[in-house]
Write a protein that binds this DNA or RNA. Structure first.
Lengths: 202, 202
DNA sequence: TTCTGAACTGCGAGGCACTGTCAGTTGACC
DNA sequence: GGTCAACTGACAGTGCCTCGCAGTTCAGAA
C-alpha cells in the first residue's frame, strides 16, 4: 500500500510551500505584464526577494514555475483511493471532474486560467507539460495495474492510459480555445465519452 | 485542393537537403560516441564542416537534428490522398503501417532506430517530439474535416485525433522499450485497434 | 551569357537558462 | 542547548540560441 498520509508538514516544508506560491504568483504577474519570454529568472528572483538559485532548486526549470501545482500529487492519491472500490474508468472520470473542479475553487479559478493560458500558448511550457503528462501516464498505468492485475507494460494498458490522458489535455485545450466559456467539467466528461465509446466511422 | 506536387527540386534545395542529411548523420555519430548532452552544436558544426549558424538555420534547435525526417511531409500528403476514397480511420491505419514501414526500408532501419532511441530517452528531444505531435494533430484534424465535413474545431474530432496520434506514439515507445523485437507494423495495428474499439471495463 | 535581386552562408557579439561548488545559515531531532 | 543535516545565496562557468552584418551563391530574365 502506498501509505501517503497527509503528514503534519514541518516548518521547513511550510516555508518552502509558501515561498513557491509566492514566487509563482510574482512570476505570473511579471509574465502578464511583459510576456513570458521577456521576463528573466533573475527578475523574478529580485521581485520575489529570493536568489535565482532557490528558484531553480524549487522549480527546476522556468516552465515549471507555470506548471507547478501543489494539488497535483493529491489527484493521483485520490485516484488510487477510489480504485479500491471502483473500476478505473469511472474512478478516473470522477477524479478528473469532481476533484479537479473542487480544487479549482479552493484556489481561485482566475489564477488557474492565467496559468493555463501560458501552458497553451507558450510553446516551451506546452512541451514541458507534455513531458509531465508522460510521467503521469507511467504512474497512472502502474496504479491501474496494481489494482486490476493487468500487465503494466502491456500494449493495451499503455495505449488506453495515454489515450485517456491526452483526451483530458485536449479537453483543457478546447476549454482554453473557446475562451473558458463552457464548464470544464462537462468538456472533460464529453472527451472521456469519446474515448470510452471508441471510434465510429463517419 | 492542396496541390503539393513533388516539384523537380532546384539546386538550392538539393544542396540544403544534402547538407541536412550529412549534418544529421554526423551528429548522430557524435551522440552515440559521447552522449547527446556532451556534444555541442559547435562540435557538430566543426565535424560536418559547416557553421553553427547554418545548423540553426536548418534545424532551428538541437533536438530537431534528431527529430527531422525528410519523409514526414510525405506522410501527411499520403494521408490526404487516401482520404478521397477511404474513411479516415483505415486511411490513417494504412499510412501509419504501410507507408511508415515502406519509408523505413528506403532509409535504413538501423538509422531510424538510433534516432528513435534519443527520442525516447533524451527528455528534451521527447518534449520537442510532443510539440511536433501537436502540430501534426492540428493538420490531421483539418484534413479530416475537409474530407468529411466535420467541424475541425469540435471537441469530438479533436479528441479522436489526439487519441490516434498518442496511440501511435505509444506504439513506438512500446516498440523501443521491448528492444525493437516485434514488427512495428503489428504493434501500431494493435494500438489503433485499442483506440478504435473503445474501452472495456476490466 | 550576363545582369540583378533574392536567398543563403559565415562571423562575431551577446542574452539568458541552467549547473556545480562552496561557505554561511537555519530548522529537525535528540 | 547541541549536533547534524538540509537549505540558502553568491559566484563562476557552459552552451543553446538570437541578431545584425558583410560576403557569396543561385534563380530568373534580358
Amino acid at each position: 500500500m502506498t501509505e501517503q498520509m497527509t503528514r503534519p508538514l514541518g516548518l521547513r516544508e511550510r516555508k518552502k510551500l509558501k515561498a513557491m506560491r509566492h514566487i509563482q504568483r510574482v512570476a505570473l504577474d511579471l509574465f502578464d505584464r511583459d510576456g513570458y519570454a521577456h521576463v528573466t529568472i533573475e527578475r523574478i528572483a529580485a521581485e520575489a526577494e529570493v536568489s535565482p538559485s532557490s528558484i531553480y532548486r524549487y522549480f527546476g526549470t522556468k516552465e515549471m514555475i507555470v506548471l507547478w501545482d501543489e494539488y497535483d500529487p493529491i489527484m493521483l492519491q485520490a485516484f488510487d483511493d477510489r480504485l479500491a472500490a471502483q473500476d478505473p474508468i469511472s474512478a478516473l472520470r470522477e477524479v478528473l471532474t469532481e476533484v479537479v473542479t473542487a480544487a479549482m475553487f479552493d484556489q481561485d479559478e482566475q489564477f488557474i486560467r492565467r496559468r493555463m493560458t501560458y501552458m497553451m500558448e507558450e510553446p516551451s511550457v506546452r512541451a514541458s507539460m507534455g513531458r509531465q503528462a508522460d510521467e503521469t501516464a507511467v504512474q497512472l498505468r502502474q496504479t491501474i495495474a496494481k489494482h486490476t492485475g493487468r500487465d503494466p507494460d502491456g500494449l493495451e494498458l499503455r495505449v488506453v492510459t495515454v489515450a485517456l490522458i491526452s483526451a483530458f489535455m485536449e479537453a483543457i485545450a478546447y476549454w482554453h480555445d473557446s475562451g473558458y466559456r463552457d464548464s470544464l467539467r462537462e468538456i472533460v466528461d464529453g472527451a472521456l465519452d469519446v474515448i470510452e465509446r471508441g471510434l465510429r466511422v463517419g
